[in-house]
Amino acid sequence: MLIAAPAIAVIVGVFHQALPALGWQLFTKRTNSTGIQNAILGSLLFLLGVLIVAGTIGVGAGIYLAEFASGRTERALRFFSEVLAGMPSIVIGYIGYVTLVVEFHWSYSLLAAVMALSVLVLPYIVKTTEVALRNVPSALGEAAAGLGLPRSATVRQVLLPPALPGIVSGLVVALAISTGELAPLLFTAGFSDNDPTLHLFHHQVPYLTNVVFTDISIPGARAHATAAAAGVVTLGILLVLIAIGRILASRARRNTARMSL
């Protein structure tokens, strides 16, 4: 009971706090009036960016570690990826600020934010991709090699399809993690009351967790309700992503179970 209670308490508590601000105006008005439309769009834009940057790199790295690497390099690369997973998110935010925003003159921008988020979730994607590929029964790969299929074709045509649900599930959960993050974005994304643009540099991007964080410290019930409403929307996106991830993960388990028979 003690394990189930906090999750329910948090969700109910935030929802209750948000009640006065919930409504369609959240999605149609911007943060300079009563909505959070621009912040929602910004957060979704980050998800897209993370999918492009961390998704491609992470899945590629996972495939390499599972299928192409051998011995010492594999161990070293995996070790450093795990070390990166333990990096405190505020340190990533600090480095993102002093290097990307200041040293590289990107200023608060979409690219700086996406880079910081990507470093954060990259190790997670690498790990889940590698595990998904390793869960494919080895007989499949051996049979393909026995038939003379080149290694890259084996991976693409034989090993990747059954591993795909597992890989996508990892990606989706990584996106869920990045939806709720604030520390790496605090000094890289900035904020704006306008809708986000696709400019990579020099344009500040509004996002949901920032609305939660700043509106908490603005006095007045209206701001507090908006903070909680932004929290509810964040939780909503997150729960949908986690649900998708779970469904895909169970499908992945069924896939591999069927094949090993």
Binding site: I3, A9, V10, I11, G13, G180, A183, V212, L239, R246
Partner: peptide, 25 residues
């Protein structure tokens, strides 16, 4: 069933915990 709540709790972001801690808890 209870495992789902455990996963849910793991998925809640820290800013939401902050929000809950300061207003409710």
């Amino acid at each position: 069933f209870l495992g789902i709540f455990l996963e849910l709790l793991a998925g809640i972001p820290s800013v939401i915990f902050g929000l809950w801690g300061i207003y409710t808890f």
